[in-house]
């Protein structure tokens, strides 16, 4: 191993992996919650839907579009004041979380919205005919019936999110991104960059595999 990758410090590689996993996990949880909430809000306030409201829909939709369009590396810089306010620092893994979440949640929200739109209108109508309240329709019809889309959308989002953690690494978030850029690229140690890439790929493959497995498990269509 040490002959193949002479410059790799496995201890710091391990620490970086843990940091990346930490960033991924925490931001995934928030992205998931925020994305579903926003996706539901978009779906429910759209015209013809259960809580139709033109102004809320337009406002939320514009915010989502704006944040989805800003390149991530610029988003990090723009969000520095917010980051300092929330985590009181602008370096380290935790400092990267707000920008990663704000960068991923709008993307996921759109995927959730699309998934909810695919729920058969007839099934919603049937629930209404049975006297379901709107809250019951959300919890007992919309969310369970769109579960495969919610899960597969999360898989796609997670993979984009990991690439964001690596990008955040370049501006000092830590993790495999920092290691690959600072220790690898800047110091001409290509083997470090290579190993960091391999580890990121492994994480991505595992997530894709697990996501596909869960999607297939919950999809009874």
């Amino acid at each position: 191993m040490s002959q193949l990758f002479p410059n790799v410090d496995w201890m710091s590689m391990w620490t970086a992996t843990v940091e990346t996993l930490y960033m991924t996990f925490v931001s995934a949880v928030f992205t998931f919650i925020l994305g579903i909430a926003l996706g539901l809000l978009l779906f429910l306030t759209a015209s013809g839907s259960l809580y139709e409201n033109k102004w809320i829909y337009r406002t939320v939709s514009s915010i989502v579009n704006v944040f989805r369009s800003i390149p991530f590396i610029i988003l990090i810089i723009l969000l520095i004041p917010l980051t300092v306010l929330i985590v009181r620092t602008m370096i380290g893994a935790s400092a990267a979380l707000p920008s990663i979440i704000i960068g991923s949640a709008p993307f996921y929200a759109r995927l959730v919205e699309i998934g909810l739109r695919e729920v058969d209108k007839g099934v919603i109508e049937a629930a209404q005919a049975m006297g379901a309240t709107r809250a019951q329709i959300v919890w007992k019809v919309l969310l369970p019936e769109s579960l495969p889309s919610i899960v597969s959308g999360m898989t796609v989002t997670l993979i984009a999110l990991i690439s964001n953690t690596a990008m955040a690494g370049v501006v000092g978030a830590g993790g495999l991104g920092t290691l690959a850029y600072n220790d690898g690229f800047e110091a001409y140690k290509n083997d470090v960059t290579f190993v960091a890439t391999i580890i990121i790929l492994i994480i991505v493959f595992i997530i894709q595999f697990a996501g596909d497995l869960i999607t297939r498990k919950v999809d009874k269509r």
Partner: peptide, 21 residues
């Protein structure tokens, strides 16, 4: 109205079952 609707059953051309159940 919701209470009254519970007294009126309905079936549909495309069944409208929840496939997740």
């Amino acid at each position: 109205l919701r209470l009254e609707r519970k007294k009126i059953g309905m079936i549909f051309q495309h069944f409208n079952l929840l496939w997740s159940r």
